[in-house]
Write a protein that binds this DNA or RNA. Structure first.
Lengths: 340, 340
DNA sequence: CTGAAAGCGCTAACAG
DNA sequence: CTGTTAGCGCTTTCAG
């Protein structure tokens, strides 16, 4: 019925253990033998049983992608990361499990435990804001589960992938300043996301570099979601001296800002410039197309997973690699209204 | 270290086999015994090993969600279905694997095979357009892999979940007609999707019911993607006698249509009414908000998975359940321009 | 209704 | 560099 390790061994004229060695890319197999075994595997179309491997050995060839189900807006951002992780799995004969977690739930840690011990997951890819959830990280360390993070806040001990959000945000806001804007507002993301902090820092840095004083009235809380962008813009646009440009910490909120502007009969960018962050598909689907920063989410998911797999292979350099951002200057930003 | 079946057995004073019976909800266990075993499991925090179960038995408690990676636009639609499947898994102690497939790829079937035999997947959830891919269905049947579909085209032998796309589309177009539109165009989806066919049928039915002749010039090909909506609208809006309303087969294309209208300096709905289908988040984030049909994707994913699990439990009614749609009338549709 | 024995397909630990 | 011997934790027979 099923081709087993033993069958391959017989066909190749070696012991099962040798086949196992080849399968696991262990050292100490004569090159000649290895080739013979590989050929046998190929010709018999042998596929190892993950169950048996998981049961007998310590590895499962399964990685899990964890994400938070409460505080996570951008399903499109997560979907892209997931695609990236799948790309990496594909290239390395891993399989992926998807694990939505409710960070606020009382059984949060129990669920993580269950995941790990149930499926012997070899490692996990963490996405924001799980990348910096202390109880989770503690548990993963306790149980010695290798993990790799996408955009972790704490960049010292983490391995994974990140982007220079701060400089990206700074570049974006600098662009607004160069267009002539002085009254520039910022809509914050969810507090516990690193992205929120970095993008705010970039905003401040750009203002400060241009000698524009920081005005707390121009910085309002958002939650990375469309609706929060609408709410934030309603506040900002009714200020006695409203901003001429609004930088929202992500595209969804920027879309909300544009929506709120439309609602007031304002035209973007004539009456107010708007920009976002991430370059999700939405950005180019809005009218006018949104100026934003491109964040290569899929690439980041892939890289994080690849980092994890290197770690699993023992070759882990344990690095936090950085991917480049790029400004996407589109039509939602322009010169400030005359006489403002 | 790990709590095993044997440990539970010892604690409950029964044989391992009995614990196994309880675990698998088999009949023929005295109620009293069952309770004792359950109590022991609970107090010892026992969690069965999926690897061992998979290896020894025939079940893996793993379901896979298959989707096509080429012809699939709406990542947000798939993400919602995925969430629904996860909901169902959660409720039934299943785990989910995510399997992007390249339908066009030469190794398509091999990949499916690999998936099934590698992981002993108990069953799969199929999403469009995989729901009607003959080689795939044949292979699944050959290998006797239970499967459940979301919106399959062939509704006879399929089990899963569907919506009445046709009547939904008809209702939507009827709404346009009631607003006074006569020249109504339609942007088609990808050809091999059932949704494309049904929505077109609904469009035709509505016209026909109103006595409006069907004009092939008003029906243009699209691909469910934003860009294809833009292209389609560019054609339609430059027609000698352009339509006063455009019904796109999904929201992404409708967004493209609105974008193209903006590009030409036209105002929606003053100059042209636009409506879509699905009610993805995008629909309410556009300006003006998009009139569309709400399709409960997450619910559908969940139901499809639940149907599958019933099938696995042997209680399979094998039904194709239908979920209700609802019209979302918003501001992108209005009366046709005067004198048109 | 319950139990005993025999593996599922692989890898770990130890020999050679 | 390669092989041997035991299991991993569960379910499947088959007996009671």
């Amino acid at each position: 019925m099923r081709v087993r390790l033993e069958d391959v061994a017989r066909a190749a004229g070696v012991s099962p253990k040798t086949v196992s060695r080849v399968l696991n890319e262990e050292a100490y197999v004569k090159d000649d033998t290895r080739k013979r075994v590989l050929a046998a595997m190929e010709s018999m179309n042998y596929r190892p049983s993950p169950s048996a491997r998981g049961l007998a050995g310590s590895r499962s060839f399964l990685v899990a992608m964890l994400y938070d189900n409460n505080d996570n807006p951008a399903s499109t951002y997560l979907a892209e990361i997931q695609n990236g992780v799948l790309d990496a799995c594909d290239a390395n004969r891993y399989s992926m499990m998807v694990c939505p977690l409710r960070m606020r739930g009382p059984d949060f840690i129990r669920r993580v435990d269950a995941l790990i011990s149930d499926h012997h997951v070899d490692g996990v890819v963490l996405t924001p804001p799980l990348t910096d959830h202390p109880p989770l990280l503690r548990r993963l360390r306790e149980r010695e589960v290798p993990h790799s993070s996408v955009s972790p806040v704490s960049r010292n001990d983490a391995i994974g992938v990140c982007m220079d959000d701060e400089h990206a945000a700074q570049a974006l806001v600098t662009h607004l300043i160069q267009l002539g804007h002085q009254r520039i507002a910022h809509v914050l993301g969810i507090a516990n996301h690193g992205a929120t902090r970095w993008r705010l820092a970039g905003y401040k840095a750009a203002l400060s570099a241009a000698g524009i004083p920081y005005d707390p009235d121009y910085v309002v809380q958002g939650e990375f979601m469309f609706g929060s962008g609408v709410a934030a813009a309603r506040k900002l646009l009714t200020l006695p001296e409203p901003p001429t440009a609004i930088f929202a910490a992500n595209d969804d909120m920027a879309a909300g800002v544009m929506w709120a502007a439309n609602e007031r009969g304002m035209k973007v960018p004539r009456d107010v410039s708007v920009c976002g962050f991430d370059d999700t598909p939405l950005a180019s689907q809005l009218w006018p197309p949104l100026t934003t920063v491109r964040q290569p989410a899929r690439e980041m998911g892939k890289l994080a997973a690849l980092q994890l797999m290197e770690l699993l292979r023992g070759k882990g350099s344990g690095l936090l690699v950085q991917v480049p951002y790029s400004l996407q200057l589109r039509e939602s930003t322009g010169e400030p209204p005359k006489g403002s």
